[in-house]
C-alpha cells in the first residue's frame, strides 16, 4: 500500500519548497545566494516551483570572486534571462580595491576566505535579513549541525552553541534589529539526491560538469584547471586531460576529476561508485580539519 506516499526526492522537494516559502513569508528582505554550482541551481529551480506562476519574489545574489570559470558566468546570465530573475552581483575585486579585503599571496592563493567579507558587506548594504544558501548537511561535519533557519549575530557569525532548536517544521525566524538568518532549504539532500533530482526534473547545468578536455595542473593530489589565476610552479607542468568537475567553486581551489561521463546517467553512476567525498575535490576544505567550522563561525556559508 504505497498509494499515498511520496518517493524520497519528492519529499525532499516538498520540504525545500516549504522552507523557501516560509523564508519569503517570515522575512522582509530575503535573498537567494547563487554561485552557479549545481546546488544553487537546484535551489533556484525549487524557488521557481514554490511561487509559480509568479516570478521568484526575491533577488538572486552572486558573490563573484573574479576567479569563476567563464562557463559558470555564461550559464548564470543565460539562466537569469530565461527565468526573469533579479540578479545582484557583488565583486570580491571591489572589496580588494577598496581595501576591505586583502589578496592572499603565493601559489595557493585563494579568494575563498575573502568571499566572506564581500558577502557580509553585501548583506548589510542590501539590508538582506535572510540569505538562502544551497549548503547540505552531508557535505561536512560542521554543516551536519546546521539548522534550516540558522541564526547569525550582528557580525554575521555562527555560534554553534547558541542555535534555536527546530521542532517539527515550525521555523522561528524572529530576530532583533541587525541580526540576520542563513537559510538552508537543501539541508537534508545528499550529493546523490541533487544529481537524481537534476535528472528527474531535467534541469540545465553548466557544461563543465560533463566531460571535456582541459589543461590541468596536478597539485597536492588535486587536478586544478590551468588559468590566469594560478601560478604554475617550476616543478609542475600543465597537461591536457579528460576531466569534469564534481563541484564548481573558484578555479583556484576546485579540483577536477578524470572522467568520461557525458550524460547525467553516467554522472549518477560515477557518483554512486565514487570512493571519495565531494569535498575531497576542494582544497579550501583541506587547509585544516576544522577549516569549514572556522570559516562558518566567521560568517561563511
Amino acid at each position: 500500500m504505497i498509494l499515498y506516499h511520496l518517493n524520497h526526492l519528492r519529499e525532499l522537494e516538498a520540504e525545500a519548497i516549504y522552507i523557501i516559502r516560509e523564508t519569503a513569508s517570515q522575512f522582509e528582505r530575503p535573498a537567494m545566494l547563487f554561485s552557479g554550482g549545481k546546488d544553487s541551481i537546484v535551489m533556484t529551480h525549487l524557488a521557481r516551483k514554490a511561487f509559480y506562476p509568479a516570478r521568484i519574489p526575491f533577488p538572486l545574489l552572486h558573490i563573484d570572486t573574479g576567479h569563476n570559470f567563464p562557463e559558470t558566468i555564461e550559464f548564470r546570465d543565460k539562466m537569469v534571462a530565461e527565468i526573469g530573475a533579479n540578479l545582484i552581483v557583488r565583486n570580491v575585486q571591489d572589496s580588494i580595491n577598496s581595501g576591505r579585503a586583502k589578496e592572499e599571496k603565493g601559489p595557493n592563493a585563494s579568494r575563498n576566505m575573502l568571499q566572506t567579507i564581500t558577502l557580509l558587506d553585501a548583506l548589510e548594504e542590501l539590508k538582506v535579513d535572510a540569505a538562502m544558501g544551497g549548503a547540505r548537511r552531508d557535505e561536512e561535519k560542521a554543516r551536519a549541525k546546521e539548522r534550516f533557519f540558522s541564526h547569525r549575530d550582528e557580525f554575521g557569525q555562527w555560534d554553534p552553541k547558541n542555535q534555536r532548536p527546530e521542532l517539527w517544521m515550525l521555523l522561528n525566524g524572529r530576530k532583533h534589529q541587525g541580526e540576520h538568518f542563513r537559510v538552508f532549504p537543501l539541508s537534508n539532500w545528499t550529493e546523490m539526491d541533487v544529481w537524481m533530482y537534476i535528472a528527474m526534473e531535467k534541469i540545465d547545468i553548466p557544461n563543465i560538469y560533463f566531460t571535456h578536455q582541459r589543461e590541468i595542473v596536478k597539485r597536492d593530489g588535486m587536478l586544478l584547471a590551468n588559468s590566469e589565476y594560478i601560478t604554475v610552479r617550476e616543478t609542475e607542468k600543465a597537461e591536457m586531460m579528460t576531466v569534469r568537475f564534481r563541484t564548481i567553486g573558484d578555479m583556484t581551489c576546485t579540483g577536477a576529476v578524470l572522467s568520461p561521463a557525458n550524460s547525467l546517467q553516467q554522472i549518477i553512476e560515477e557518483v554512486a561508485a565514487s570512493k571519495t567525498t565531494e569535498r575531497g575535490t576542494r582544497s579550501d576544505d583541506k587547509r585544516s580539519e576544522t577549516a569549514m567550522e572556522d570559516r562558518k563561525k566567521a560568517g561563511y556559508f
Partner: peptide, 9 residues
Amino acid sequence: KDGYLNMEL
C-alpha cells in the same frame, strides 16, 4: 536509476 526513484525516506 529507476530503483533510486522508488526509494522512500
